[in-house]
Design a protein around this nucleic acid. Structure first.
Lengths: 134, 134
DNA sequence: ATTCTAAATTGTAATGATTACAAATAAATT
DNA sequence: AATTTATTTGTAATCATTACAATTTAGAAT
């Protein structure tokens, strides 16, 4: 499956690349480059931060992952779901959830005369889990 | 009007602060900190970059302006319109337009169990003006 | 109008994420 | 197995933003 994605993009298969992609795909946690690095260094101790950044760039370019930037946060996060969808950012725990809403406005190809290529949207608030805590 | 906003937020009125706010309010260009600095240094030659940053922070905290971050860009942009609305980012000229759409999803107080505090949304594409160019 | 105090301004130095670069290594093609 | 080309790696640079401490100023109090 990972092999497939990489082949299709004619990206070479390397342990580093596989682990990076596997990690992003696995947890739905929308990790930062640092989270990815810290996690993979446990498996591949000699991996370089630069490799992580290089691969994130390459995977993004190949449309295998997507970058997400959140106002107020200073690290880019990465999403393995490239199909259009939205996010919910918890202001308490920092977790990012995928949100599946289909908004009419986001199917438009045009808005106020401008030609739309892509849509970015997210909510901020307190998540389900954190609401529980008293 | 600017005086009003500053008073209401009990922020002191300084030439620097006035110019910064005036600049953001004026053009609807959603400037970066650097754009603000470069413009105001023409009027107040001894202004410091730090002052620009300090004021952006203060004005944002007072809810007089809003920060916008766009995936793929590395500088924060600032908006004088704090009422909820969306944006259109032109991938050719870089301009950011205000978009007035009211989406049902964005009036919700809750989504998939999470409690919503705020909404961020923008489109990317080619703007009206740039579409003209052959 | 002068004094006072907290807030604002300033310059410099630090921070921290990301990128540039060049040498070494490894994947995939022949 | 040899070759080619992408990938990995470490180090150093970049660039936006922030920390900090000294100086100055706005606006309140006198």
């Amino acid at each position: 499956m990972i092999t497939n994605k990489l082949n299709k993009a004619s990206l070479k298969q390397t342990v580093q690349r596989e682990e990076i992609l596997k990690y992003i795909l696995a947890g739905k946690i929308h990790p930062t480059a640092d989270m990815i690095y810290k996690n993979i260094v446990k498996i591949i101790p000699h991996i370089s931060r630069t490799t992580v950044y290089n691969n994130l760039k390459a995977l993004e370019k190949a449309n295998i992952i997507k970058a997400i930037t959140i106002t107020g946060e200073d690290e880019t996060r990465y999403d393995a779901v490239v199909e259009p969808h939205h996010h919910f950012v918890c202001e308490k725990c920092g977790k990012i959830y995928d949100i599946d809403i289909c908004c009419n406005n986001f199917l438009k190809k045009n808005i106020e005369g401008h030609s739309i290529n892509s849509v970015y949207a997210y909510f901020k608030g307190i998540c389900k889990e954190c609401t529980k805590d008293v």
